[in-house]
Amino acid sequence: MRLLRYCEKTLEALVALFMFCLVAMVFTNVVLRFGFNSGIVVTEELSRIVLSMLILTGAIVAMVQQRHIAMTLLVDRFSPVFKKITVMVTGSIMLYGTWLLGSGAWMQAKLNFSSNYPLSGLPSATIYVVASFSAAMLCLIIFARMMLILIGKMPADRFFQAASADVAE
């Protein structure tokens, strides 16, 4: 459990670092363009990469902390057995969609390992590797929650708990 908490805090720190880098690059470029009529050309490319990494890492953090938006109006009225069935169906759909993301990103990564971004020189596969890693982590989280609910270690309500539940409290 301590390891999971450490991983979560590490991902949060990465999100904060990516956000800081993104703001710093964009702010610096705006100041240089308007103040000195110049700019750092590579920041446009790097900000695109960092934004993608920020979004993908943030998706993992949101899934771990159950901060995704959920529509639980109908599910809240289900019986516990039907909630479990709904968890298995929706979890399977989520796993399939995440698998599509991961396998597609990995295919793109394999195609782009040999090419580099023109300005920064970073491998073009960078974003796709991060997307594959994010998809693997999301699949792991979804599958683990499905199994915990299936064996009775976690109530089915927790699968659908999301940001909307915080507002009600």
Results as ranks from 00 to 15, higher is better:
residue 23 V to S: 09
residue 23 V to Q: 00
residue 24 A to P: 00
residue 24 A to W: 07
residue 25 M to P: 00
residue 26 V to K: 02
residue 27 F to W: 11
residue 27 F to E: 03
residue 28 T to C: 08
residue 29 N to M: 11
residue 29 N to W: 06
residue 29 N to K: 04
residue 30 V to S: 06
residue 31 V to L: 13
residue 31 V to T: 01
residue 31 V to D: 01
residue 32 L to Q: 02
residue 32 L to H: 01
residue 32 L to Y: 02
residue 33 R to F: 07
residue 33 R to Q: 05
residue 35 G to C: 07
residue 37 N to E: 05
residue 40 I to E: 02
residue 40 I to K: 01
residue 42 V to K: 05
residue 43 T to Y: 11
residue 43 T to P: 03
residue 44 E to G: 13
residue 45 E to H: 04
residue 45 E to K: 01
residue 45 E to F: 00
residue 46 L to G: 00
residue 46 L to R: 00
residue 46 L to T: 00
residue 47 S to V: 01
residue 48 R to A: 09
residue 49 I to Q: 08
residue 49 I to S: 02
residue 52 S to P: 01
residue 54 L to E: 06
residue 55 I to G: 12
residue 55 I to L: 15
residue 55 I to C: 11
residue 56 L to Y: 05
residue 56 L to I: 04
residue 56 L to H: 06
residue 57 T to G: 13
residue 57 T to F: 11
residue 58 G to S: 15
residue 58 G to D: 10
residue 59 A to P: 03
residue 60 I to F: 09
residue 61 V to R: 12
residue 61 V to A: 06
residue 61 V to F: 05
residue 62 A to W: 04
residue 62 A to C: 15
residue 63 M to T: 11
residue 65 Q to G: 09
residue 66 Q to Y: 09
residue 68 H to C: 12
residue 68 H to L: 15
residue 69 I to S: 08
residue 69 I to G: 02
residue 71 M to E: 08
residue 72 T to H: 04
residue 72 T to A: 13
residue 72 T to V: 14
residue 73 L to Q: 07
residue 74 L to N: 00
residue 74 L to G: 10
residue 75 V to W: 07
residue 75 V to K: 02
residue 76 D to I: 05
residue 76 D to E: 14
residue 78 F to A: 11
residue 79 S to R: 09
residue 79 S to M: 13
residue 80 P to W: 09
residue 80 P to T: 00
residue 81 V to N: 10
residue 81 V to G: 12
residue 83 K to T: 05
residue 84 K to M: 10
residue 85 I to H: 11
residue 86 T to N: 13
residue 86 T to C: 15
residue 87 V to A: 08
residue 87 V to C: 13
residue 88 M to W: 14
residue 90 T to W: 12
residue 90 T to I: 14
residue 92 S to H: 06
residue 92 S to G: 14
residue 93 I to N: 05
residue 95 L to A: 11
residue 95 L to D: 01
residue 95 L to S: 10
residue 96 Y to M: 15
residue 98 T to P: 06
residue 99 W to I: 05
residue 99 W to R: 02
residue 99 W to P: 00
residue 99 W to F: 12
residue 100 L to K: 13
residue 101 L to A: 14
residue 101 L to C: 14
residue 102 G to E: 12
residue 102 G to F: 04
